[in-house]
């Protein structure tokens, strides 16, 4: 008898569970794709958001900025994410209008691997740009030694590790190097991929994890990776000389962002930020929406997602290695988000 009642309760439970998906059918589902750099924080947001807000889910596919914009143009996604904003000619292709919103920002660090693991290596502007031009090739180069009197630098060739895949990280990094070194601008330029010097001491690895792993395994290596990644992987990264001539470590980028005013289209580049404490390689990353959408339920969900990102989302940014947006920027983004209808 007892077991029969248990069974009945179980059966009722099953029916309830089976009934629930019918309710869940009402859920609004947003799909997005694009940049891999903000993917960790976006995925955390969306997971938390769908937990708190039962009426919506957001699916995000991290496949690269370029691919995200392509999906957006093909209308296979509701929104895209891109580290390199969106090209003017691409924006012109969208009849509904395009609204770009900076949702978070990040820094790129130069991770290095030196015998004895010295911390806090300082790299002057002309030194690190020339390392990536292939002109400074030894760790005991007089210029590096002069900037780091307290570190004993070995007679070791510098192995430069770069991204092998096409990447927004490379775009931001080369934009900075082009801004500070005219020769870099002339010979390599900027972009998702550039024509790096073809020598034995320039190697390439796929994605942030590939570069990180290669740097860790190669004595004398230096490579550019995202700050969040460097923090996670616990690699040593250099302090870089900024525009004001000061050496700055990454990790307090909010002031850097606040110093730059966002224009009307919300796309601001910081190829070489001012400010004595600014870390020199900093960049926004954007979400891309259509201005006119024909599904009001989706529009509502989009606004909820943006609002969540601007409020709750910013609180976890710092711990994940991203830069929380300053209050001024949040206000501007919120205002611009009203254009999405």
């Amino acid at each position: 008898m007892n077991s029969l009642m248990k069974f009945a309760a179980f059966a009722a439970g099953v029916t309830l569970c089976a009934a629930n998906p019918a309710l869940a059918q009402e859920k609004v589902r947003l799909t997005g794709s694009g940049a891999s750099f903000p993917a960790p924080i976006y995925l955390t947001w969306f997971k938390d958001l769908s937990k708190k807000n039962a009426t919506m889910t957001v699916d995000y596919q991290s496949k690269g900025s370029g691919a995200g914009v392509q999906d957006f143009l093909n209308k296979t996604v509701d929104f895209a994410a891109s580290d390199s904003a969106m090209k003017k000619e691409d924006i012109a292709k969208v009849a509904e209008g395009v609204q770009l919103l900076p949702m978070t920002a990040g820094e790129i660090v130069l991770a290095y691997n030196l015998p004895g693991n010295p911390k806090g290596l300082k790299l002057p502007r002309d030194v690190y740009s020339n390392i990536f031009l292939g002109k400074i090739t030894k760790w005991n180069d007089p210029k590096i030694v002069a900037a780091n009197p307290e570190i004993k630098l070995p007679d070791l060739p510098i192995t430069v590790v770069r991204r092998a895949d096409s990447s927004g990280t490379t775009a931001v990094f080369t934009m900075h190097l082009s801004a500070i070194n005219p020769e870099f601008k002339k010979t390599l330029g900027e972009g998702n991929t550039v024509n790096w010097p073809a020598t034995d001491k320039f190697v390439a690895s796929p994605k942030n994890d590939g570069v990180t792993a290669t740097v860790r395994q190669t004595p004398g290596a230096i490579g550019y990776i995202e700050y969040g990644f460097a923090k996670l992987a616990k690699v040593d990264f250099a302090q870089l000389q900024n525009k004001a001539g000061q050496y700055a470590a990454p990790g307090n980028g909010a002031a850097t962002l606040a110093a730059v005013k966002l224009p009307e289209d919300m796309v601001a580049w910081l190829p070489d930020p001012d400010g004595a404490k600014s870390y020199p390689i900093t960049s926004y990353t954007w979400m891309i929406f259509r201005k006119t959408n024909n599904d009001p339920a989706k529009v509502k969900a989009m606004h909820e997602m943006i609002e969540y990102g601007l409020t709750e989302g910013q609180k976890i940014a710092d711990s994940m290695g991203y830069i929380p947006l300053p209050a001024v920027v949040v206000e501007q983004v919120r205002k611009a988000a009203a254009n999405i209808k």
Binding site: D200, V203, P206
Partner: peptide
């Protein structure tokens, strides 16, 4: 993934399949 032609076994090189996958 370095675009160079070298006989040396220790030099970085590139392959077609890797070029395709990464780009």
């Amino acid at each position: 993934n370095s675009n160079q032609i070298s006989l040396s076994l220790f030099s970085p090189a590139n392959t077609l399949a890797a070029l395709l996958a990464l780009n």
